[in-house]
């Protein structure tokens, strides 16, 4: 069992970081800025899992409220006060 535990942890890390690549790509190409912010928050969630697996609980505690809560909230406020769509 212990032999496979290491590989399983690395496998979760690899899958989470591949999913974060998908989220980053969608966040950059998306024209609706609200959706882009939500994809960016999704990427932050994957990064938080990655930090936890990389044995950094301190960073998880500071990163979750900042990158999943505060930054998307502030950016959504900015979008609601300015414009929502990115033109071609």
């Amino acid at each position: 069992m212990n032999v496979y535990a290491e590989t399983i942890v690395y496998l979760i890390m690899a899958v989470v970081s591949l999913l974060s690549v998908v989220a980053v790509y969608l966040a950059i190409v998306e024209r609706d800025l609200i959706k882009a912010v939500i994809y960016s928050a999704l990427q932050s969630g994957f990064y938080a899992v990655l930090y936890y697996l990389l044995m950094a609980p301190d960073i998880v505690l500071v990163y979750l409220p900042v990158a999943v809560g505060l930054i998307p909230g502030v950016l959504i406020v900015l979008i609601s006060k300015t414009e929502r769509w990115e033109k071609e």
Binding site: P57, D58, V60, L61, V62, P65, G69, L70, G73, V74
Partner: peptide
């Protein structure tokens, strides 16, 4: 695990 920066960032969620 924790500290001033983490606790402050967590509390700052509440006003938002």
């Amino acid at each position: 695990p924790g500290g001033g920066f983490q606790g402050g960032a967590t509390i700052a969620v509440i006003p938002l």
